[in-house]
Simulated assay, not measured.
Amino acid sequence: MALIKKQVHILIVEDDNDISGLLCNMMKKSGYVPQPAFSGTEAILYVEKKKWDMVLLDLMLPGMNGEEVLRKIREHHLVPVLIISAKGEQQTKINGLRAGADDFITKPFDIEEVMARIDAHLRRSSTMKRIEEKNQLTYRGITVDT
């Protein structure tokens, strides 16, 4: 019996085509499935349609800014969110982390550091999911958290 590896889906919310393309290419090379979104409004549409394993989020976006997108994500989802922004002021970073982001990287960024942080967040996230699943019993569509 062959093991089926779960695909990891990452939403990349970035309005700059070059940066979005770079991040998407790196995700593909690492075996992840990237989905670009070029505005905050588009990002929210994707978040409402699908369960994501991670979100990479720029703050300066057309439509709805990154802070608003983060707030909307946190209303219903615990997905890891990594902010990647040109806004590098200390208070912006603090505000983003306190608003619910899991990490913050300033532009310009080192792609290897971004990939290492993504891998670390996904590793921690999958470990937490496995722990949660061990504490749950499911029978005929009913799940009980032991």
Rank of each mutant, 00 (worst) to 15 (best):
K28P: 04
M115N: 05
E42Y: 05
L78P: 02
P36D: 10
E89G: 11
F109L: 13
G88T: 11
D119I: 09
K87V: 11
G88A: 13
V114E: 04
D53I: 01
R117A: 05
I10H: 04
N95A: 12
I44W: 02
L122W: 00
M27A: 15
L11N: 03
T106F: 04
M64A: 03
A37Q: 06
K29V: 09
F109C: 12
A116L: 10
N17G: 14
T92K: 04
I12G: 05
E67N: 05
G96I: 01
E42S: 13
G88I: 04
P36V: 12
A116R: 08
H77D: 09
S39W: 05
A120Y: 01
I12V: 15
I4F: 07
H9N: 13
S39T: 15
E113V: 14
V81P: 00
T41W: 03
W52Q: 03
L23E: 11
D15T: 15
L122K: 00
Q7F: 07
E112H: 09
T138D: 07
L57Y: 00
V114A: 04
E68G: 03
V13W: 02
E48C: 07
D53P: 04
A86C: 07
V13D: 02
G63L: 08
R140I: 11
T127E: 13
H121Y: 05
K93R: 15
M115A: 14
E132W: 03
R124E: 07
D18N: 13
L122H: 01
G40S: 09
M64S: 07
G63C: 08
Y46V: 06
A101F: 00
L56S: 03
Q91L: 08
Y139Q: 13
H76R: 08
V47C: 10
L137F: 11
R74C: 02
T106C: 12
I83S: 00
P108T: 13
R71A: 08
N65E: 08
H9F: 12
Q35R: 11
T146M: 14
G66W: 00
E14M: 09
T106A: 06
R74S: 03
I84N: 00
E133N: 13
W52E: 03
V8R: 10
D58C: 07
A2T: 15
L56Y: 01
K29A: 12
V79P: 00
T106I: 13
L97T: 02
V79S: 01
D145N: 14
E67D: 11
A37R: 02
G88S: 14
I12K: 01
V114P: 05
D110F: 06
H9A: 15
D53N: 14
D16Y: 10
A2E: 12
I19V: 14
K87S: 09
L78W: 05
S125V: 00
P80L: 00
P34M: 08
I142A: 14
R130E: 09
A120G: 07
D58W: 02
M54C: 12
Y139C: 13
V13C: 09
L70E: 01
P62N: 14
E48V: 08
L137R: 12
D145T: 15
I19R: 09
M64C: 08
T138M: 07
D58S: 04
L61I: 08
R140V: 13
R117S: 04
I83E: 00
K49I: 03
V8P: 04
E89I: 05
I142D: 09
A101M: 01
Q90I: 15
G88F: 02
I131H: 06
K50V: 06
L11H: 02
V81K: 00
